[in-house]
Amino acid sequence: MRNMKLKFVFFTALMGLFLLTGCETNMVVFEPEGPVARSITELINWSLFWMLLVVVVVFGLFGYIVWKYREKPENMDYEPPEEHGSTLLEIIWTGIPILIVIALTIPTVTTLYDLDDVPNGYENKEPITIHVTAADWKWIFSYPDQGIETVNYVNIPEDTPIDFKLTSASTMQSFWVPALGGQKYAMGKMETQMYLIADNPGSYFGRNSNFNGRGYTDMEFEVLAQTQEDFEKWIIDVKKTAPTLTESKYEELLKPTHLGRLTFTGTHLVWVNHAKRDSKTYTNPELYRYHGYQGKTFEEEDNYKNNTSQDDKQHDDHVEQQHNVEDKDGGDQHHGH
């Protein structure tokens, strides 16, 4: 019995050491690049402190009790008397978890409510509004004030509040830029909202963090924080060079495909706002079977020049190949969504 207990303690300590040495240190959420992300990181660190305290105390008491009350030659036949127990100890080990929950709840609730507003220190700075539409399998960003729409990337000025208004043209998806803030859901015929700020110019990775299924795992985008001067130059350049977004082109974008980065003048908000309950529903269930086309999401050196001709050709070739396979197999082959 004694050897079994000691082996269990040794095994537990060994597993803990293995997990600690196996953890990577390059976790983006612990390297915040904006005030929103810093608030979340501070909350995570506060929670980790209490978790570590609980683990140390529990494992410390566990090891002490196993050692102190282990079976020894002099107590082989010892039978402890039946006792009522200690009322004081029961109050202590009931009260401590309650206090820990309170210590975690108060800062969590406070932080969550603070994140709904413009971060402290930026109240007098005019935010830029960007509408985010999740689609199959891409992210569409609309700048209503600038008259610009982008796909799979979004440019923002540094040190400026960005008011993201989130919705979806299809399923519920999750908008997440780990270096700048936490995730928030984008849902069809609804609108959620979040503020993000980038302290300095830089490129930040974003993605859909919801478990939607095949096709959605590659829904990635870039948030490029620029100086105010570069951001304004980008707007001017887009207005000079980007094609105009038409309603038919937008409906084509909503089809389930992986696309590269696209840029347009004008926004789809002129025809449809997916956040409104009476908005038109765009679904293409018959196209879900053809989703092997991966596109070139991050291969273009210039992140805002359109390059769709080759992508469209690859997509058409892929669909034609799928049809040929189905015809050869009697039409029974089906790549499920």
Rank of each mutant, 00 (worst) to 15 (best):
R38I: 01
I40W: 02
E42T: 02
N45S: 11
N45R: 08
W46T: 03
S47H: 11
F49L: 12
F49R: 03
L52F: 09
L53R: 00
L53K: 01
V54F: 08
V55H: 09
V58Q: 10
F59W: 08
F59D: 01
L61S: 09
F62H: 08
F62K: 00
G63Y: 07
G63V: 09
I65S: 06
I65R: 07
W67A: 04
W67C: 10
R70A: 10
E71F: 01
E71D: 12
E71M: 08
P73I: 08
M76P: 00
M76T: 06
P81C: 00
E83W: 01
E83K: 03
G85K: 02
G85W: 02
T87G: 13
T87E: 12
L88R: 06
E90I: 03
I91Y: 05
I91D: 02
I92Q: 04
W93I: 13
W93Y: 15
T94A: 12
I96C: 10
P97N: 05
I98Q: 13
L99A: 15
I100M: 13
I102K: 04
L104A: 09
L104C: 08
I106W: 09
I106S: 10
P107H: 11
P107L: 13
T110A: 15
T111K: 10
D114I: 01
D114T: 05
D116K: 12
D116W: 05
Y122P: 03
Y122Q: 08
N124F: 01
K125A: 00
E126P: 01
E126S: 12
I128G: 02
T129D: 12
H131E: 15
V132L: 13
A135G: 13
A135D: 11
D136W: 02
W137F: 14
Y143K: 12
Q146R: 08
Q146D: 15
G147W: 06
